[in-house]
Design a protein around this nucleic acid. Structure first.
Lengths: 115, 115
DNA sequence: CGAATCCATCAACTTCCACTGATCAACGAG
DNA sequence: CTCGTTGATCAGTGGAAGTTGATGGATTCG
């Protein structure tokens, strides 16, 4: 699946583009950052990100469509969580992008990782 | 700078968003993929990506603005090259996003990487 | 039940992107 | 010098994406 094994892998560019689009907004990145600490309900995010409710809902939907988060309803609240595997896939796409054929460059990008 | 060391690092979300935006288009990802094999002139890309010249120019500009590629002029031609460090930074942003405070989750995303 | 909270959804509007076709500057070749 | 090639840039256009404010459904609490 997604490992640092960076195989040849013909990437689905359209799919990847859609996902990167989900990351191309500061509000959405802010949401992901908060979710990095664990599950959050919308009202929490609303307070911390100082965003109108409908705006937040819009961005959460975008993240959900991209497969970057999931939601869960409990009582009145909707809780959102990261889907770490998707971030993992995207991380791999970036690695592959910089490297395709050249193993040498790959290691350079990886830095001291996977050394 | 960008290493798998994934430090705390307050990320500049706006800057990151702008960069991810550059990756949010299949044509641009295609360009990056081709540049993974090494420097290319615009006319090469044009042939292989089957894109109109002004369209290509537009996307190359977007990639350049995002710091993902550089260009070099020689005679009649413009040659474009990847800037691997920028891809490296973005790769780190993704890692940090999934992790912020939680070291445990970080390792999970990294998979077998960084042991 | 009635009031309040949480959140998704909708319509209206604005802003931003991507694409096309045209033009133009730079360069090299004949 | 003239012509063909390379590629940047520009104006115009259609459509997608983001924002706001309002509405309504679901749920909880008094």
């Amino acid at each position: 699946m997604h490992s640092c094994g960076v195989t040849n892998t013909a990437i689905d560019l359209t799919r990847a583009a859609r996902r990167f689009h989900a990351l191309s907004d500061a509000t959405r990145l802010g949401i992901l950052q908060m979710l990095g600490d664990g599950e959050r309900c919308v009202c929490d995010l609303q307070g911390d990100l100082d965003a109108a409710q409908s705006r937040l809902s819009f961005h959460l939907m975008a993240l959900k469509d991209a497969g970057l988060v999931t939601d869960r309803k409990e009582a009145r609240w909707s809780y959102y969580t990261l889907m770490p595997d998707t971030l993992g896939e995207m991380h791999d796409v970036i690695l592959v992008l910089g490297t395709e054929q050249s193993k040498g460059r790959r290691l350079k990008i990886l830095g001291r990782c996977c050394g």
